[in-house]
Each structure stands twice: as structure tokens, then as C-alpha cells.
Design a protein around this nucleic acid. Structure first.
Lengths: 145, 145
DNA sequence: CTAAATGCAAATATTTTGCAGGTTA
DNA sequence: TAACCTGCAAAATATTTGCATTTAG
């Protein structure tokens, strides 16, 4: 099943409609890797159709988040970022505090950690929505004091 | 050394000045536990002196962040939260996605995980600024499907 | 005395909302 | 056709900035 099919199915089931705008936004998200800002999404959508309004982008992102096809974080710089989850495997994000580069990592590396947290205090970490701040190898190398 | 002393020292060293407003804001942060919003800080400061402006609160928070006495996150609800770090030990935050409750956990539980990440991909996680989303024991219990 | 900080108001930036008209099912 | 969706513009929020005045050192 493709992402589009999953989206359409969810729309139908809940009485929503499939519009060209929603298709375009989904397609743009699908083509973008990693965490992207609303502006990045918006300007890509505009290339497909310049009449699409940014409020429609916001509304569609809300919808996609409800459907769990997209999730969002604000790394703390006031620039909320969205990511398309689609049907692919979930993964962690490592966001470099210096250069902003985002690396994807398999959930598996965090499994033991999650287990430990659950054992010690009963908290179930949502690993599939996790972004970790820190230093990427390159920046860690040049920043060693 | 008290937090105030540390703050004053940093101010002096960098040519900044110690003002009553800055003292008040620091004192308010010091008395507040956990992650708080600008409005919460602002209204507490106003109780001490109603003439303090919110822009001064923002400016002071920026300063304190530069000094690493405060850090901020936006859990994704559009309400950025600040936390006073002071001279206490750093710790992780577990933020419940359902009830919003914040639990503090020793950094130590994540040490092995951080080590693993560094070994496998060279990324140095900033553990001391980490907030993890998930379900707290209570909400995990009532949500089990 | 002088550079730095404040309060105020206005400016920005970001996201949300009301509504009239267009569109999907 | 009827409810839903969109674009537009205006509103609501949150944060930042310019500037005259005040103040710490």
C-alpha cells in the first residue's frame, strides 16, 4: 500500500475529501527527506501551484498529524519542523546543534535505553518521535577544546 | 558558590551589569521547579515589581541561556518552556504526551545509550538538554489498548 | 560620566480563524 | 446538492526591535 493510498483511505473513513491541494502537499512531503519547515514545504508546493495558500498547508499538516503520517518538533530555534512518516520504518533523528545537519538512525540503537527507562520509572518513551540534539562527528571534531 | 554569585561573576566578566530586574528574574527562576513558560515567569516577576516589562524578561532569558544557566525547549505545543539549570546536576526530562507531566531523571540512565550512539555513528548527544516524549506510568496504564 | 539596560510602543514572525465562493463525492 | 475545502484577509500570539530615558559601575 502506498502512502497516498493510506492517506486517501484515512480521509474517506473519516469523511474528509481528497483535494488537489492535499495531494500536492502529500507529494511534496513524500519527496522531502528529514525535518523541514513550513516555509520549505510551502515554497515547494507553490512551484506546483502558486495559488495554494499557506493556511491550507498548515491545515493539511494538522490533518496529516492527526493521521500520524507526519509529526512535528520545535528544536528550540523557533522554527518548527515537520517530518513525513509515511509507511516507512520509524527512526531517530540526531540533530547537530552547530551545523543543523540531521542524521537518521535505526530505532534499534535506542531500544535498550527505552527498556531501561521503562524498567526504572515506568515511562514509555515514544522512540519513533525522538529527536536528539548534540554534535555531529564533523562539528565534534572541530569543537574539541 | 551560589547561583547568584555564578551569575554575577559571568555578568562582570563579560561587561554586563547587574540590575534589579535581572536579580528578580533570576530569583524567580530559582524558585520555580521544572519547565516554565515565559508568561509564568513574567507574572511572578510582576508580583515583585509590576513595572518590569516582558521584553526585559525575554532579554534576560536570552542572557541566561548564553550563560548556560537556563535552557529552553518547545515540547511541540507552541509553548516554549524554560528551565533554570543553576549549579544543580543536569538531568533528563520525561514529558508525558497525554497529561503533560514532567519527570526528572538522572543523566546516568542514558549514559550507556549515549556511548552507544557515539560508538556507532560518532554523534555526541547533549544529554543535559534532552527531553523525551512518551507516556508516563499513569497514562500508559489507562491507554493500553 | 558613559556605556549599558530598561520600558514602552511599534514591528515582526508565525499560526489560526471567519467567511464567501468554489469543489468533491 | 450539500457538506466540505479553499483562498483571502484579518486576527491572535509570541517574540523582537528602535529609541528616548534611566541607571550601574
Amino acid at each position: 500500500m502506498s502512502c497516498e493510498t493510506a492517506f486517501i483511505q484515512q480521509l474517506r473513513e473519516r469523511g474528509f475529501r481528497l483535494t488537489p491541494q492535499r495531494e500536492m502537499i502529500l507529494s511534496v512531503l513524500h519527496d522531502m527527506e528529514g525535518l523541514v519547515t513550513v516555509d520549505e514545504i510551502y515554497s515547494r508546493v507553490q512551484r506546483l501551484s502558486s495559488s495554494v495558500d499557506i493556511s491550507t498547508v498548515y491545515r493539511t499538516l494538522d490533518l496529516l498529524q492527526e493521521f500520524d503520517l507526519v509529526f512535528s518538533v520545535d528544536p528550540g530555534d523557533g522554527q518548527r519542523r515537520y517530518e513525513f512518516l509515511g509507511l516507512q520504518d520509524a527512526h531517530l533523528h540526531l540533530v547537530c546543534q552547530t551545523c543543523g545537519q540531521v542524521t537518521r538512525v535505526e530505532l534499534e540503537v535506542a531500544q535498550a535505553f527505552a527498556e531501561r527507562l521503562r524498567a526504572s520509572c515506568g515511562f514509555q518513551v515514544a522512540l519513533d518521535r525522538l529527536s536528539l540534539a548534540g554534535l555531529c562527528p564533523a562539528c565534534a571534531g572541530s569543537a574539541n577544546n
